[in-house]
Simulated assay, not measured.
Amino acid sequence: MSVDLPRDVVLPVEVIDVRLDPEPHPLEISHKAEIAANWEREIASNPRLFNGTVVLVSEMSYEDGRLTGHCHAARYATFLYWRRHRDVPGTGHFYAHAMLVSSDNALVAIRMAPHTVNAGRIYFAAGSFEPNDFRNGVVDIDYNMRREVKEETGLDLAVAERGVLAYVLSTERGTVIFRRYWMPLSANEIVSRVNAFVAAETDPEISGPVVIHSAADQPDDLLPHMPPLIEWHFSQQRH
């Protein structure tokens, strides 16, 4: 098993055939004690972490616009262990971004809340895939995107124009598949709506929205995979 994609290049995706394997992830079996010990350290540092179910990749490849792979349901503790040991073979993180584009062509990202594992970091609203993001065993990236954007920002992607193609970027930190969604709102209007949603939440996942107006407008605290996505967007036509 391997995760074998070209690194650090944005690639178009026409077909997504990433499947959920019912068997446990090999990492969860082979490193059970280490995962448990690391989880104790993680919750000692941040007691609000929840050991829910996420999805980790065991195999993934890309060829001629086709992204294929196998995923396994795993505990969040397993994912956090992998984050500290990214060189474990046959293991990878696969997640999705809905790239929100305002009517005035700004990108709208989010800053994560202080209690989250990525506290203060900036990226597009996202979360790890979960088993309910798969339809007939195959990942539904747009369902995941709609769910995560709604949960974090209150925005409904049903009002947006969906980009024709998805794209993938693989780095040493993981593999992100993303799609542009053009919102029928200006950046200021999106900011107002997201801020109102966050203010009304008892325990919001994000601190608030972050607007990016150009390829040169890259705020501090961006996660490392974000600059290539920002630069890609502002170099592309609408499609």
Rank of each mutant, 00 (worst) to 15 (best):
P6F: 09
D8C: 13
L11Q: 10
P12D: 07
V13I: 09
V13R: 10
V15T: 10
I16S: 00
I16M: 01
V18Q: 00
R19N: 01
L20Y: 06
D21W: 00
P22G: 11
P24A: 08
P24Y: 08
H25D: 03
L27T: 07
H31D: 02
K32W: 05
K32F: 04
I35K: 08
A36L: 14
A36R: 14
A36E: 13
W39Q: 13
W39K: 14
S45E: 15
S45I: 13
N46S: 11
F50H: 12
T53Y: 10
T53L: 12
T53S: 15
V54H: 12
V57C: 05
S58M: 09
S58V: 04
S58K: 11
M60E: 02
D64E: 15
L67P: 00
T68G: 01
T68A: 02
H70R: 09
C71Y: 01
H72V: 03
Y76C: 07
T78K: 02
L80G: 02
L80S: 05
L80C: 06
Y81E: 04
W82Y: 13
H85G: 14
H85Y: 15
G90A: 05
G90P: 06
G90E: 01
G92L: 00
H93W: 01
F94K: 01
Y95W: 15
H97Y: 15
L100Y: 00
L100P: 01
V101F: 00
V101E: 00
S102G: 13
S103E: 15
D104V: 14
D104T: 13
N105Q: 14
L107M: 10
L107F: 03
V108E: 00
R111W: 08
P114Q: 12
G120H: 14
G120T: 10
I122V: 15
I122A: 09
A125S: 13
A125L: 07
A126M: 15
G127A: 14
S128D: 10
F129C: 02
P131S: 11
N132Q: 15
D133K: 09
F134Y: 13
R135W: 08
V138I: 14
V138G: 07
V139I: 11
D140M: 06
D140H: 06
I141K: 01
N144I: 06
N144D: 05
R146C: 04
R147F: 04
E148H: 09
K150Q: 10
E151F: 04
G154R: 13
G154H: 11
L155K: 09
D156W: 09
V159E: 10
V168L: 02
E172Y: 07
G174E: 01
T175P: 01
V176Y: 03
V176H: 04
V176N: 03
V176F: 03
V176L: 08
Y181N: 07
P184A: 09
P184N: 14
P184D: 11
L185P: 06
E189T: 10
E189G: 11
E189Q: 15
I190V: 11
V194T: 11
N195G: 07
F197Q: 12
F197G: 11
E201N: 13
E201F: 07
P204M: 07
I206A: 06
I206Q: 06
G208P: 04
P209H: 03
V210N: 04
V210T: 09
A215Q: 12
A216I: 07
Q218D: 05
Q218N: 08
P219R: 08
L222S: 06
L222N: 06
P224L: 05
H225D: 03
M226N: 04
P228E: 09
L229N: 04
L229I: 12
H233W: 00
F234H: 04
